[in-house]
Structures are given as C-alpha cells and as structure tokens.
C-alpha cells in the first residue's frame, strides 16, 4: 500500500521530467554535439562563426538591444505598477489597457508595429501631417533601426514587468508606510527607505527573467527589420540554418547564445545561494 503510493509519486515525477528531457534537453545536447562536427570532430564551426564579422555585429546588437529594451521597460513598468497599485484603484479600462500589448498574440502586435513604422506607415504619415520629414525608422543602414526594435520590444513586454513589480508592491505592508509617516518621513524618504528596499527582490527577479528574454530576442527583430536589417544572435543562427544551409555552423552560433544565457543563469543562482546563506534577500519566486 505504501509502496504503491511511492510508485505513483515516482512516476508522477519521472514522466513529466522525462518528457521535458526528451523534447528540450536532448535536442539541445545533440545540437552541442553536431556543432563540433565538420568532417569529424573539430572546432572548425566555432572558428568560422567567431571569425565572421556579421556574427560579431550580431553579438553587439544583441547586447545593445537588450540593454536599451530593459532600461525602457523597467522605467515604464515601474511607473505603471505604481499607477495600478496606488490607493485610488485604477479603472477597468486602464487596467486592461496597461496589459493589452501582452494580451495580443506576439506576431499580431509585431506586424501592426511594422505597419506603423514602415517608410509609408502611420507614424511617418502622422509626421507628414504636421509638416515634418519622413524618418527611416526601420532603415537597416541606420542606428535608428536598432532603437526602433528596442522600443517596440519594450512596448510589448512592459506589461509583464508591470505585473512582476506590481506583485512586489502589493506585498509591502501598509503599516510600514504608517510607521515611516509617524517618524516624519516625507514621500521621497518613504519611497527611498521603504518602497525601494522592499521592492528589490521583485525588481531583481523581473530583471533576470526579462534579461534572459532580451538576450534570446528573435521574432521582434525578424518581423521588424528582417534577418539582414539588424542581425542578433538568434536571427544570425536562423539565417545560417535556413538560407545558407550551414546547419552545423548555425548550431555552433546557437550553442554560443545558450552558453551566454546559461552563464547568466548560473551566476544568478550562485548569487542567490550566497545571499540566502548570509540571511540576505528573499529571492523566492525567481524560478517562476
């Protein structure tokens, strides 16, 4: 009887984990093996990728895009979270509007953003209406293209940051503000010494989740700029795989991206273990 229960629990653990291993981990590992193959085992694919100037540009673009997008979405995410959590509850319309970009399917949002930013799109139309010249928002030769992609990405994911920060804000007990008020803290002191320190875990968790997403950005770039317009690491690999038919080199590039993200993840987990050991941050929920 006991043993039957044990068997049930073990299979309940084993089946889902086995499924994850077969569909996600196994392909990843076989990709790692294939990336070392070029007439037998060699580093040739990595040598090619690392020597390719387009790849170096795509690494640079990935990092710039991630940084720009993160800054914008965290500033706006925090503002919206404060708006939604303030004592006077935001209306239903505001609530839904703030979440809207997240609710629309990604590809739908991106294609509309593309129609807005095209040379003969709605934004340039609006500029022309007030007598301003047209701007090449998605022109692959200009640095503006990267900025446009970053802004659209930030626009789309700000609701997610808002939700994560809102969760942190709602967890701060109101008594703390009352106590601070009694101690004579003004609104600035309150946000500096109550809100900010207590929001840190949520901020930190959101930063990791979004940081990983920003590094593996794919569809936003593909839809807005095309793989040639502003190559990032994942579109670079996609391009090698699909158009150049260089499967193994593409896998080398994507393994490099996975390594980058994996390193970030490992650093965060190590850091979390350290802060917890020293009795520091309450960083649970990160795994969610």
């Amino acid at each position: 009887m006991r043993r039957a229960g044990r068997f049930l629990r073990l299979s309940c653990l084993g089946l889902p984990l086995g499924f994850l291993a077969i569909t996600l981990i196994l392909p990843l590992l076989s990709g790692v093996i294939l990336s070392f193959q070029a007439d037998g085992f060699s580093l040739e694919n990595y040598r090619f990728v690392l020597g390719d100037s387009l790849f170096r540009r795509s690494v640079y673009n990935t990092l710039i895009l991630a940084a720009a997008s993160l800054v914008v979405e965290f500033v706006w995410g925090l503002i919206f979270a404060l708006l939604l959590s303030s004592r006077r509850r935001a209306s239903f319309v505001t609530e839904v509007s703030v979440l809207m970009p997240l609710l629309i399917p990604e590809i739908v949002f991106l294609s509309v953003a593309r129609y807005i930013l095209l040379p003969r799109g709605y934004l340039n139309g609006a500029l022309a209406a007030v007598g301003l010249p047209a701007v090449g928002w998605l022109d692959p030769r200009s640095a503006l293209c990267l900025l446009s992609v970053a802004l659209v990405d930030a626009w789309r994911v700000t609701p997610m940051v808002t939700l994560l920060l809102l969760d942190g804000l709602q967890g701060i007990p109101a008594e703390l503000y009352e106590a601070a008020l009694l101690d004579g803290a003004g609104s600035f002191a309150q946000s500096r010494y109550v809100t900010l320190p207590l929001l840190k875990p949520a901020l930190y968790g959101a930063l990791v989740l979004r940081g990983v997403d920003a590094l593996r950005i794919f569809s936003t770039v593909l839809v807005l700029a095309g793989p040639e317009g502003a190559p990032v690491m994942s579109t670079y690999a996609y391009q090698l795989w699909g158009d150049a038919m260089e499967e193994h080199r593409a896998m080398a590039a994507s393994v490099l991206l996975a390594t980058m993200i994996g390193t970030l993840g490992a650093v965060v987990i190590a850091f979390r273990a350290r802060t917890r050991a020293s009795g520091g941050g309450a960083l649970e929920g990160l795994s969610g």
């Binding site: 984990l17 996600l24 990843l28 076989s30 294939l34 690999a237 996975a258 993840g265």
Partner: peptide
Amino acid sequence: RWGLAALTASRLLPMIAVALPLATV
C-alpha cells in the same frame, strides 16, 4: 527541488538552440 530545477532550466533555453537540432531529430 528536482522539479523546480528542471522547470527553471527549461525556461532559460533559447528557442533557436533547441529548435535547430530538434528539426533534425
């Protein structure tokens, strides 16, 4: 512990690094 580790790891994977070899499989 095992479950959370597996769930966290599977959320970190970049799509492209799984999709390309998965196509071969």
